[in-house]
């Protein structure tokens, strides 16, 4: 009996301690906060600290604050800001990530719309079929694109063998287009699933109501559907844009070194010269650029108000 009484007391104590607001907060957001602190915030702080350092000839970090990396990145050898290799690479990375985001949106939207309007096994089977290719390893998919593109790749060979073209098409040659195609293919699921989740919540009777009141198809879509799914579009775009901005494998495989995206530039710096400080500075710029982009997107879409509500 005595044991039972003490068990009760322990239980009561645990219940009490768990019911306090502080305990509840600790238990719910505590693990996530600890995770973020350990694996996001601390590494970021380390990145910031290292970006203000240089390395000696033995690749050891010299812990003396310096702006040398920043100066060299932005104003190298008297070059104008916009002519600095890093800035040019940043523009290019933005352009490629932007183009990838737009193409994933264009590819994903009709499919997501169709799936949202249908129901039953069709949706499940179609979604599964669409996602099956993404169960394969990323690098394997890049190898597949490598074989498809190129002057002597599968795409050109098929066209040549069918007699449709008499010489390999330059559009299939390695470079910008294959990189964007491969990145689009890689990131379509992020956009598709986000858009589908967003469209699935749309009450399409509102579109019918708008049509009944005289709105055309485009007007009804623009004024009814788009505002309802804008948060999904923005979220999907962020999911695609951010990883595309720092892409490494796709341009490494498919650009054949004809241009350098930021991710490649960081790898080359760190790999060949072990310039950890320099690489950290470049990574800092990517992080800042991403935060600014997301802030602008949120501002444009009015999503911040939506979040506040």
């Amino acid at each position: 009996m005595a044991t039972k009484g003490s068990d009760e007391r322990v239980r009561e104590r645990v219940r009490k301690s768990l019911s306090s607001p502080r305990s509840q907060i600790s238990l719910t957001i505590g693990p996530a906060t600890a995770w973020l602190l350990l694996f996001v915030l601390l590494p970021m702080l380390f990145l910031v600290a290292v970006s203000f350092t240089t390395t000696d000839q033995y690749f050891n970090i010299i812990w003396e604050p310096t702006l040398a990396n920043y100066e060299d990145l932005l104003f190298r050898n008297g070059l104008a800001f916009w002519e600095a290799p890093f800035v040019k690479s940043l523009y290019l990375s933005y352009a490629i990530a932007g183009a990838t985001t737009v193409t994933t949106l264009i590819v994903s939207f009709p499919v997501a719309y169709l799936l949202a309007r249908r129901s039953g096994p069709f949706v499940k089977v179609t979604l599964f079929m669409l996602l099956v290719p993404f169960f394969s390893v990323f690098i394997v998919r890049m190898y597949a694109w490598l074989k498809i593109f190129g002057n002597n790749g599968a795409a050109n060979n098929v066209l040549l063998n069918l007699g449709i073209v008499s010489a390999p098409l330059g559009v299939f040659d390695y470079g910008l287009i294959p990189t964007i195609v491969a990145l689009t293919h890689a990131f379509v699921p992020y956009m598709l699933l986000t858009l589908y989740a967003s469209l699935d919540g749309v009450d399409f009777s509102l579109v019918e109501a708008a049509r009944d009141l005289g709105a055309g198809r485009i007007t009804a879509f623009k004024d009814v559907v788009v505002p309802l799914i804008s948060s999904g579009v923005i979220t999907g775009s962020i999911f695609v844009f951010v990883p595309a901005l720092g892409a490494y494998l796709a341009p490494q495989f498919l650009a054949r070194g004809q241009f350098l995206m930021i991710g490649q530039m960081i790898v080359e710096r760190v790999y060949t010269g072990y310039s950890i400080g320099y690489g950290s500075t470049m990574a800092m710029f990517i992080a800042i650029a991403v935060v600014i982009t997301i802030a602008i997107l949120y501002r444009i879409s009015g999503l911040n108000e939506f979040v506040q509500q």
């Binding site: 190298r76 290799p85 890093f86 040019k88 241009f259 350098l260 530039m265 080359e268 060949t272 010269g273």
Partner: peptide, 14 residues
Amino acid sequence: NEDAWVSAWEEVRT
């Protein structure tokens, strides 16, 4: 002057 080499090479590549 390896840093200068790396910088020059980045200019070529971008």
